[in-house]
């Protein structure tokens, strides 16, 4: 019992010594830093001279995408993962076989869970490239969604010039 009490007091003493040393080192380091700052010709002012301002433009989030023509042969390859960026109603009406629908919105960001699910699907499909097609308008939702998902780290993303209308016209021509 007395042995335990002795151990406890020794542990407490060591902690106190550690704390004392830590406080001493912190104080000395702070004093040294302040002295160096004081002597330095371009020392940092301890009180802000002017209001802090964030003067950096805000970039639009997104990554690099490459353009494909509607008759590009890679569109029908099994190693291509197809994404339709149009609204669900028009997607239900017509789309390329095997395409996944992820609607692009100009105001709301694509939800992170949708991006995650998409990334998992792309990974499990073993696709070598991702091709996004949208409404084909100017600007094109396909290109915008492509930039969006490329910005989230999905590699080798392409978009189809002219979007779904151009693809449909191409299919009907064939």
């Amino acid at each position: 019992m007395s042995m335990r009490a002795k151990k406890g007091s020794s542990f407490g003493g060591t902690c106190l010594v550690c704390l004392r040393d830590a406080a001493l080192i912190s104080t000395l380091a702070s004093v040294l830093g302040l002295m160096v700052n004081l002597v330095h010709p371009e020392g940092i002012s301890l009180v802000a001279q002017q209001e802090y301002q964030t003067m950096v433009p805000c970039p639009v989030f997104g990554g690099e995408v490459q353009k494909l023509t509607p008759h590009d042969p890679s569109l029908v390859k099994k190693t291509t993962f197809l994404i339709d960026a149009r609204e669900a109603s028009v997607f239900d009406d017509w789309s390329l076989r095997g395409a996944v629908n992820v609607t692009f919105d100009y105001l709301d960001p694509t939800p992170p869970e949708v991006i995650l699910e998409l990334a998992q699907k792309i990974a499990s499909s073993r696709a070598q490239r991702v091709v996004v097609f949208g409404d084909g308008a100017r600007p094109d939702t396909g290109e915008q969604l492509g930039r969006d998902i490329a910005g989230h780290g999905i590699k080798n993303v392409h978009y189809v010039e002219g979007g779904a209308p151009a693809l449909r016209a191409q299919k009907e021509k064939l």
Binding site: P57, C58, P59, V60, Y106, L107, R138, P139, Q144
Partner: peptide
């Protein structure tokens, strides 16, 4: 927003 994208607005301002 669409007009900005067409005009290559890639940051604000």
């Amino acid at each position: 927003k669409k007009e900005g994208i067409v005009n290559r607005v890639d940051a604000t301002p």
